[in-house]
Write a protein that binds this DNA or RNA. Structure first.
Length: 554
RNA sequence: GCACCAGUAGCUUAGUUGGAUAGAGUGUUCGGCUACGAACCGGAAGGUCGGGGGUUCGAAUCCCUCCUGGUGCACCA
């Protein structure tokens, strides 16, 4: 709708010899108009005229050819141009949306290949709430890109070759465990134990670093342990991602990047210098240098990230690489991006750091359980399910599959309605709420509309709009492209969550007031069935984009 | 110390390429099931948009400054 209004205005601007591109936005005063254009202020400054005069000239041009599209176009006080759509125009666009496969949303001209990195679980520790955020946000960004016609490759990028593995192997050696003795439970308790030990005991830390280095150099005994650790941990990680409906095309990790380190070093040979016994890459006066190789010869996170970029670029030639990671890593990625772009291997604008805020507890500090760890995902899923089941007796009778879908909707909607970049407070009680702006509210709306439509058949949309709730719903449906475009351009799924919620509130108001069953006026009935059909079609697709699937019953 | 991010209603928050009266949820409060599902709908109260200054016809949004909180700063990931 907006792009169409802008086209109409552009036509008028040409006739008036205005070079600027028109800009139309959703009205912020819905009682005055549907859409507004605030260009007259800027144009007034540039052409040294009164904004109202310019506004009137623009309106005059628009009226010449498109009068039937508007109920009203007016210029108000300081210079706002207000558009109120005619029923004809609203319905014309609703039909366009219904008939188009992707709701007549303007698609990007270019089709690029995006490489996404939104996993990053450490195979030495269980997944916690922070991993869920990466996974949910990343999966949603991937689906949005695909919806907009873009190609994607997603890599889980396991944290599987650093000091943490050296620490676990140290623990295994101490306990005299054999490969076949290793279990998930054992790994989960060993890592924190040794990690804590390293902090107080310099000897142990040195030993762990030594093991890490030898592992990286290919020590066969350590390699054997490593493979089993990765196998055990990887299976558990897969199970949790599966529960969240999050998938990856590649299950690579830092360890896979090691094969590319020699070539990466070759690529960076002109900029690698020696400093304090380590090999580093200077990345500018304002940043600390990136450490390529430790003075003891071991490699680090930054090295594998460079090698991973090398691998991805040479193998897949992506146009963009997106990192969905915690904001706390912003400095690290700034260094990596600079290193890569300063030698011209990739351009800065091809590399995107999509930082998300830290998940904090009600005290505003990073979320921890009483024992001091970040809560495991398993217990979060279980707690959320328990809370949901306790809300209503009937919930316990639902199929397990539907219960899981609702738990997913609770967690994902609670997460995605927040702005991606900001820290947010995680309170399990509020997070698991099922009333108000929540996943269950959205699902409830969808299921209820579906119930209404079950008894109806889809026919034509008439030219009439019958009342305020009816008009509000039609207008809200027309707003879809605004939100999806923003979500795509800014890589912000929260815009879609927001739209879905708004659509549900107007839909609720609509069907609460307007009953379809037993409605004798044929035209009205057909129109409303048409409108609700389109509404649910959109809801379903948008819910898919934020990773929410719809249960059979609520 | 330096750098980055944030501060919006009691609580959780949306809105920052400058636009009209700052928008939700929750909590409080009033009203609505003889109805296609009340996990709902309608109304009320609740705001110095951290403080101060500036730019502008117009600032939550841009600039300066101060306060508060978080995070990161060379061999962890």
């Amino acid at each position: 709708m907006i792009s169409y209004l802008q086209e109409i205005l552009e036509e008028g601007y040409k006739n008036l010899n205005i070079e600027e591109k028109p800009n139309v936005v959703l009205s912020n005063r819905p009682e005055l108009c549907d859409y507004q254009c605030d260009d007259a202020f800027k144009l007034a400054k540039k052409y040294h005229k009164n904004p109202v005069e310019i506004g009137q000239a623009i309106v005059f041009e628009v009226r010449k050819n498109h009068a039937d599209l508007f109920k009203e176009i007016s210029v108000v006080k300081p210079g706002f141009i207000n558009f109120t759509l005619s029923d004809f125009m609203i319905n014309k666009f609703l039909k366009n949306m219904m008939q188009s496969e992707k709701f007549a949303i303007p698609m990007p001209e270019k089709q690029d290949l995006y490489f996404l990195d939104y996993g990053g679980p450490n195979i030495a520790k269980p997944l916690h709430v922070g991993h869920m955020r990466t996974a949910i946000v990343g999966e949603s960004i991937k689906r949005i890109l695909n919806f907009m016609g873009q190609e994607t490759i997603a890599d889980v990028h396991l944290g599987d070759y650093g000091l943490q593995i050296g620490q676990v192997i140290y623990g295994i050696l101490q306990d005299g465990k054999k490969v076949e003795d290793l279990t998930l439970e054992y790994l989960e308790e060993t890592y924190p134990k040794i990690s804590a030990l390293c902090k107080e005991n310099e000897e142990v830390k040195k030993k762990c670093e030594e093991i890490t280095k030898e592992l990286q150099e290919g020590n066969p005994k350590y390699q054997e342990y490593f493979k089993v650790i990765r196998e055990i941990s990887g299976n558990d990680i897969k199970r949790l991602y599966q529960y969240l409906n999050v998938s990856f095309d590649l299950w690579e990790g830092e360890s896979d990047a090691y094969a590319y380190i020699p070539k990466t070093e070759e690529l960076f040979k002109d900029v690698i210098i020696e400093s304090e016994g380590a090999k580093v890459i200077p990345v500018g006066e304002d940043l600390p240098p990136l450490i390529f190789q430790k003075s003891n010869g071991a490699y680090l996170y930054a090295t594998t990230d460079l090698a991973t970029i090398y691998e991805r670029v040479t193998k897949y030639h992506p146009d963009h690489i997106l990192y969905i990671v915690d904001n706390r890593q912003s400095l690290h990625f700034k260094q990596v991006f600079r290193a890569v772009s300063q030698i011209g291997f990739m351009k800065m604008e091809q590399l995107e750091f999509l930082g998300y805020g830290t998940v904090n507890g009600t005290d505003g500090k990073p979320y921890k359980t009483r024992s001091g760890d970040a809560p495991k995902l398993d217990s979060l899923f279980q707690n959320t399910l328990d809370l949901f089941l306790s809300k209503k007796e009937e919930n316990k009778k639902m199929e397990k599959e539907d219960q899981d879908k609702i738990v997913n909707s609770i967690l994902k909607f609670a997460d995605l309605q927040n702005n991606r970049e900001k820290d947010y407070i995680f309170d399990i009680q509020k997070f698991s709420s099922v009333v108000g702006k929540t996943g269950p509210y959205i699902l409830y709306t969808y299921v209820r509309i579906q119930k209404i439509l079950e008894k109806e058949t889809l026919k034509e949309l008439s030219e009439t709009i019958y009342n305020e709730e009816d008009r509000n719903l039609r207008l809200k449906v027309l707003e879809l492209p605004i939100y999806i475009t923003k979500a795509y351009e800014e890589r912000m799924p929260s815009y879609i969550a927001e739209y879905v919620y708004q659509l549900c509130t107007v839909a609720n108001a609509f069907y609460q007031k307007n009953h379809i069953q037993n409605l004798e006026e044929e035209e009205k009935r057909n129109s409303w069935v048409y409108l609700l059909t389109l509404t649910n079609k959109i809801l379903k697709e948008m819910l898919f984009l934020i990773g929410i699937t719809i249960p059979k019953f609520m």
